Amino acid sequence: MNADIIEEISIDCVVFGFNKQNLEVLLVQHAEGESKGKWGLLGGWVKTKESTDDAAHRIVYELTSLENIYLEQLKAFTDPDRVISERVITIGYYTLLNREDYNIKAGLKVFEAKWHKINEIPDLIFDHNEILNFSLMHLRNRVRQAPIGFNLLPEKFTLLQLMHLYEEILGVELDKSNFRRKILHMKLLVELNEKQQEVSHRAAKLYKFDSEIYKKLTEKGFNFEF
């Protein structure tokens, strides 16, 4: 076997979730190997006879019981020193989830699977902080071009909830009146004859997405700068 041939390919998945007001990422605490006890992204090896896409879905399921989720490939991370003990190339993936729709269960290879706020991320194993930062940058670019983050919201939501989502993803504070004017001008939302229920403050109007407009904007893209 030629010692110059790279044999090890892994997968690392960034799973973003939105918890009402906070953007979070799912991390696992490893239960074995040199990274035992440390936190990292959802990762594992690619098997000989599976594609990287199949490997990504298998790994996520084995570590957290999450299945039937959409995973988008980011890029390969190839720094020769990303893993000290051996030469490993990893393929990064990411996804966005509405946390309330999924039940997370830690697999046998990890002590714990836990959501962390995006601004409270610990030091992760290997180059996982770099992979996470790249994923977040990619996410911020994408939400300005397509409504990909909207699946993090419930079916019916307020304009304030939508604004909080974009503030969390973009890492900025948005002007409430400007956001309202621009989002309503897009004709993307359907105003419902309903208001929030069981809230201590003044109940706000509820909206949902116009599925046809949503589909068109997703296909052709748009400028979503605020």
Rank of each mutant, 00 (worst) to 15 (best):
L160P: 00
E7L: 15
Q29D: 01
T48N: 02
N103G: 01
L124T: 04
T218Q: 09
S65Y: 08
E120V: 06
G17Y: 07
K114H: 12
K195A: 09
E155Y: 09
H30N: 15
A146H: 04
A204Y: 10
L41K: 03
N133W: 00
N68E: 10
Y207R: 13
R181Y: 10
N223V: 05
V15L: 03
F111W: 06
V190Q: 15
Y102G: 03
A113S: 12
N141I: 00
I213D: 04
A204I: 12
H201D: 14
I104R: 03
I118K: 08
I84V: 14
E72R: 11
K20C: 09
L189T: 05
L132S: 07
A146Y: 06
F18D: 04
H164Q: 13
R87E: 08
R202D: 14
F209K: 10
E194L: 15
H116W: 15
E219S: 14
R180F: 12
D127H: 09
F209M: 11
N133H: 07
I84G: 03
L96I: 15
D127M: 02
L217V: 06
H185P: 04
F111N: 09
V60W: 04
N133L: 05
D101A: 05
A146R: 12
E112F: 00
V60L: 12
I121V: 07
V88D: 00
E212H: 14
T218I: 12
L189G: 09
I84T: 12
G43W: 02
T52C: 13
L124K: 14
Q73C: 01
H201C: 03
I104L: 05
N223P: 00
V14A: 15
I125M: 13
F18Q: 09
G44H: 05
Q145H: 10
A55W: 11
S200T: 10
E225W: 04
N178D: 15
D12E: 15
H116F: 15
L217G: 05
F209S: 03
I213Q: 13
F222M: 08
E167D: 07
K215I: 04
Q145N: 13
M137G: 01
L108E: 05
Y214L: 14
H30G: 01
